[in-house]
Design a protein around this nucleic acid. Structure first.
Lengths: 248, 248
DNA sequence: ACAAAAGTGTTCCTCTTACACCCATGA
DNA sequence: TCATGGGTGTAAGAGGAACACTTTTGT
């Protein structure tokens, strides 16, 4: 038993997107995959840490390669450090793929939120990646299913406590779209009248001059997220009683 | 620029305790310290990861060595991965102290909450460790001041959202003690009547048969934390509307 | 005219806040 | 008897939950 020096450190990213109906996650097919093995093909995008980069830098690098996007919402969520989290055939695959020889990989899980516009979808599909419905995923390579589950849990928590939802929506969106997003991610029904009241009262939505076009019903108003209003509200909150926020 | 293989991974623990008045953190003086260097002496307890252990296992190992305690509240909080977070003299110290030769140490920060009873204080002081008022700490070895700040921020957040406060109190405690703890950690004043109403209404406190003794005022009732009641409440909550908890 | 989704108000109730005095004990 | 901190109640206001119908558009 000695201090661990021949290990590698990696990052894996659960990249989430929302298509208006359901929550998607970006999966890639691993290369160097021999069709006769029974290893799962699909995995989360990830990479080993390089000499001179921090973990967030590595995560941004992975994200940019996978989606072509910079300036994306990205957050660390958990570390997966079981010495046997990859072993056997899976460990062999890693060593072969990266041309290294390690006995253990500790990975840091990140989750990212992107706006699923046509350009991004085009980029990812050109790379052979897929946006898969999170509810339909049964198995993934290595322990990536576990990493994905952890990311989903964190996403739920964050959505209830900060306005990360807007990272998943286009710049202009309808209140219904926002509501559907909450509904889909959290798996709950939300009363439209109360939701609308609450979200409008917050002052974080700015109405635009535009409305939906070509829909067979009353066209909906488009809004944008007012980041400044949110920041101001945060600062104001800090001065007041924190203790308000207790929940049991 | 190559995949990082000669790095080390470590854990550092911010161990918090509460003496009834103020929040303390456990600091140790580093050994192999040459009095003529200008390196700071005090640091958080920490260790390198061994071959066959997970990060939480390493953290528990550190904690047991530092405090003699098992079954302690311990939680991962952040990763410090700047390639230069330890360098120069500090890096030399690490290599000398551990008898290794690494160019980079990524560390995972944990925070722990312990009950500051006489036995624990005796154990730690026998080991030459100190319980230091968190507010009085200006500098620490390496980037440990930064790690401590991160831990404090997480502690504040957690205290507002889950009943971790009880980890810092003895099994039997007065409501005042609980209130003082919140007050001290969060740095706010709390109305005693409202606090008492709220905490008692939660049903998480069970009164004991005991009261304070030998105090020059009306003796206070002792309570214990009812973990089962809390767990039941959590489960009930899951069925209801999450959306309640929104805060902006 | 009809189908489809957008948008709108009110009532009830719970929870939060603000606030001041009496009580039990040791010295 | 006094000093000390423990312990109690109420009223006003804010915010949350439940609930059904009208509006606008395309077909």
């Amino acid at each position: 038993m000695s201090i661990q020096m021949n290990q590698s450190l990696s990052v894996d990213c659960a990249v989430f997107g929302f298509n208006g109906k359901s929550l998607k996650v970006l999966l890639i097919e691993r290369r160097y995959y021999a069709p006769d093995t029974r290893l799962d093909k699909l995995k989360l995008p990830g990479a080993m840490i390089l000499d001179n980069e921090t973990l967030p830098q590595a995560a941004y690098r992975v994200l940019e390669e996978a989606t072509g996007l910079r300036d994306v919402y990205l957050k660390q969520m958990d570390i997966f450090s079981d010495p046997n989290r990859v072993s056997g055939e899976e460990l062999e695959w890693i060593n072969r793929y990266h041309g290294i020889r390690t006995e253990r990989v500790v990975t840091v899980g990140y989750y990212a939120l992107v706006k699923l516009d046509t350009r991004t979808v085009a980029y990812t599909t050109a790379k052979g990646a897929q946006w898969v419905d999170v509810d339909s995923i049964q198995r993934l390579a290595m322990d990536h299913k576990q990493i994905l589950s952890a990311a989903l849990a964190v996403l739920c928590r964050e959505m209830l406590q900060s306005p990360v939802a807007f990272e998943l929506l286009p710049r202009k969106f309808t209140i219904r779209a926002l509501q559907n997003l909450y509904s889909a991610v959290l798996g709950i029904e939300i009363d439209n009248r109360n939701f609308r009241k609450k979200i409008l009262a917050s002052g974080f939505l700015t109405p635009t001059a535009e409305r939906e076009q070509g829909v067979a019903h009353k066209p909906a108003q488009y809004y944008t997220f007012n980041k400044n209003a949110y920041k101001k509200a945060l600062k104001a909150k800090l001065k007041l009683g924190f203790i308000n926020n207790w929940r049991y």
